[in-house]
Design a protein around this nucleic acid. Structure first.
Length: 459
RNA sequence: GAGGCUAUAGCUCAGUUGGUUAGAGCGUCGGUUUGUGGUUCCGAAGGUCGUGGGUUCGAGACCCAUUAGCCUCCCCA
C-alpha cells in the first residue's frame, strides 16, 4: 500500500521539530517569567463538554470519536434510531459518539477550572501548549491538526492582566527576534458603544464581523456587507465616521470619547484602554521594538470577548495575524461557576514558524546534532570506542559509534549527511597508540588526540 | 457548504494536433584496486502513467464516472 497521512495533518521532520520547539520553549520561558503555570488536558473531551460552545458552525467542525463495542450494546433499537438521525441531518448523539477531540484550549481550560475550583488559587494563571483538531477543509496555513499556545488569567478583573499579556507578546517576539511586530488593541465595549450609538445595538455581531474585514475588503466592501446585513444608510454612515477617526493614539482616544459620548459602555471601554496602556508603559522594557497601538477597526470574530481585545501581526511579511486574544466575562458560567472573568492571549505558532522561516530568524545552533561520530572500521577497537562513548556522554557530549562495519566512505557520507561536525577514527594504528584521529568535517583537518584531549576539544 | 486546478519513477516534473520498446534532474544502490565525506567519472535498479469505464486500428494524452491531493470563497488559528 502507498503510505499516507490523513488530510490536513503533517509530519514534522527532525529539523522542523527543533525549530518548533525553539519557538515553543521561548514562548514558554516568557510565560513562566510572568508567573503562569503549565496545564495539560486530555486530547479528547466528553462530547457534551464541547457541543454548543463554538456555535452551530463550530459544532460541525468537532471531530467525533465513534464509541467502541457498539455491536454488543444492549439497546440496538435505540442505536439504529440514532444512526438514522445522524445520516439524515447534522446531529450528534452520545449513544454513538460519547467523546470528541479537543477543538480549542479555552473550553477545556474552563472545564478544568470549574472541576478544580476548590483547589485553585485565584487569580489562576495558566499556559497551555497542545494540539487541537478541527474537521475543517484544509488549505494554505490551515490544518485539521494544529497547535495552540494559550495563556489565560481567570478570576481577576484587573486591567493589570491585560497589560501583562501585552507585555508577554512584546517580550516573546523580542526574544524570537521577529521584526515589525504590531500589537493592536481595541475594546469590545467601544464596539458595543458604536452599535448602541448608531441605533443597532442588537446587531453588534453583524457590525463587528463586517468591520473586521476592513483591511481585507476596504470600506466599500464593509458598507456593502453592512447593508446586506440590514443596516440603514444613516447607520452605515455613522459607522463610516467611526472608522475614519485617525491621528495619534491620544487624538483618536479623545475623538472617540466625543463621537461615542452618549454610550456609557463605550466611555468605560475607552477608559479601560487608557488604563491598560498606562500599566503597560510601566512594565515595558526599553529594548522591545514592537509597536502597541489602539486600532478601533479591530474586531476579532469570536463573540465571547467582552472587554479589551488584541491581535498581533508583523509588517515584515505578508501574513495574517500571528496571535490574538481578549477578555471574556463569565467563561466558566457555561459549566455552572458564575462570576469568574478571564483574559487570555494565543500565539499562532504555525504562522510564527512560517514568518521566521521566511525571514531566516532561527539561530544556527538549533540544528545541532551529534558532536562526534566514531567510524566502525576495526573490530578490535570496538571495546575501546565504547569506553570513549561512555566517557564523552558522561561529560554531556553527544557521541555515537556507527553501528555496522560498513565501508569507510559510506560511514563518512552518513556523517556528512547528518551534518555531524567531527568524525573520530580509531583503526589498528590509533588503537595501538591509544589515540583518536579526529577529523573536523568542516575544514577537513585531522589531528591525533588522546581521549582527554579530545574531550577538552569538544566541550 | 460553493467553485477552480492537478494526478506519469522514492521526490520535483517533461512527454509536442492521439502513433511503435516511457523521459530528465535529484535521490538510492554498485563500481572507480580494498582507512577518508561534501565536488568528478561510469553503471544499475526503480513506473499495470490515481482507479473504473468509453471513443479509436491505436490512449499517458480525448470523453464520462470515481477517488485523492492542492487552491480560492465562507469561516477560522
Amino acid at each position: 500500500m502507498k503510505p499516507s497521512i490523513p488530510q490536513g495533518t503533517r509530519d514534522f521532520s527532525p529539523a522542523d521539530v527543533r525549530r518548533r520547539q525553539y519557538i515553543l520553549n521561548t514562548i514558554k520561558s516568557v510565560f513562566e517569567v510572568y508567573g503562569f503555570q503549565p496545564l495539560e488536558t486530555p486530547s479528547m473531551e466528553n462530547l457534551n463538554t464541547l457541543m454548543g460552545k463554538y456555535g452551530e458552525e463550530g459544532d460541525r467542525l468537532i471531530f467525533k470519536i465513534l464509541n467502541n463495542g457498539l455491536h454488543e450494546k444492549k439497546d440496538q433499537a435505540k442505536l439504529h434510531e440514532e444512526w438514522d438521525k445522524i445520516l439524515s441531518k447534522p446531529y450528534s448523539s452520545t449513544t454513538v459518539t460519547e467523546r470528541a477531540l479537543r477543538y480549542d484550549l479555552t473550553i477545556p481550560f474552563a472545564r478544568y477550572v470549574v472541576m478544580h475550583q476548590n483547589d485553585l488559587a485565584f487569580p489562576f494563571k495558566r499556559y497551555q501548549m497542545q494540539p487541537v483538531w478541527r474537521a475543517d477543509r484544509p488549505q494554505r496555513g490551515r490544518y485539521r491538526e494544529f497547535w495552540q499556545c494559550d495563556a489565560d488569567v481567570v478570576g481577576s478583573n484587573s486591567l493589570l492582566n491585560e497589560a501583562e499579556l501585552l507585555c508577554i507578546y512584546q517580550d516573546a517576539f523580542h526574544r524570537l527576534n521577529v521584526p515589525g511586530i504590531q500589537v493592536k488593541i481595541n475594546s469590545r465595549k467601544v464596539l458595543a458603544g458604536l452599535a448602541e450609538c448608531c441605533g443597532a445595538a442588537e446587531q453588534l455581531t453583524d457590525i463587528t464581523v463586517a468591520i473586521d474585514k476592513l483591511d481585507k475588503i476596504g470600506w466599500d466592501g464593509v458598507a456593502k456587507e453592512l447593508t446586506e446585513r440590514g443596516l440603514e444608510a444613516d447607520k452605515v454612515s455613522y459607522i463610516q465616521n467611526y472608522l475614519n477617526i485617525s491621528g495619534s493614539t491620544e487624538e483618536r482616544l479623545v475623538a472617540m470619547e466625543t463621537l461615542l459620548k452618549d454610550s456609557a459602555t463605550a466611555q468605560q471601554g475607552i477608559a479601560e484602554l487608557r488604563t491598560t496602556l498606562k500599566y503597560m508603559a510601566q512594565l515595558e522594557r526599553s529594548e522591545w521594538t514592537s509597536e502597541v497601538l489602539v486600532d478601533f477597526t479591530l474586531a476579532r470574530g469570536l463573540n465571547y470577548y467582552t472587554g479589551v481585545i488584541v491581535e498581533v501581526g508583523t509588517t515584515a511579511v505578508k501574513m495574517g495575524s500571528i496571535g490574538g486574544g481578549g477578555r471574556y466575562d463569565d467563561l466558566t458560567g457555561l459549566f455552572g461557576l458564575k462570576g469568574l472573568s478571564g483574559v487570555g492571549v494565543s500565539f499562532g505558532i504555525d504562522r510564527i514558524y512560517d514568518v521566521m522561516t521566511e525571514l531566516n530568524l532561527f539561530p544556527e545552533d538549533v540544528d545541532v546534532t551529534t558532536r562526534i561520530l566514531f567510524v566502525n572500521i576495526e573490530p578490535e577497537a570496538e571495546t575501546t570506542i565504547l569506553s570513549y562513548l561512555s566517557h564523552l556522554r558522561g561529560l554531556g557530549i553527544s557521541a555515537e559509534l556507527y553501528s555496522d562495519a560498513a565501508k569507510f566512505d559510506k560511514q563518512m557520507k552518513y556523517a556528512d549527511k547528518r551534518q555531524i561536525p567531527y568524525v573520530g577514527i580509531v583503526g589498528s594504528t590509533e588503537l595501538a597508540q591509544k589515540v583518536i584521529n579526529l577529523k573536523n568535517m568542516t575544514t577537513g583537518e585531522q589531528q591525533q588526540l588522546s581521549i582527554e584531549q579530545l574531550s577538552e576539544h569538544l566541550v
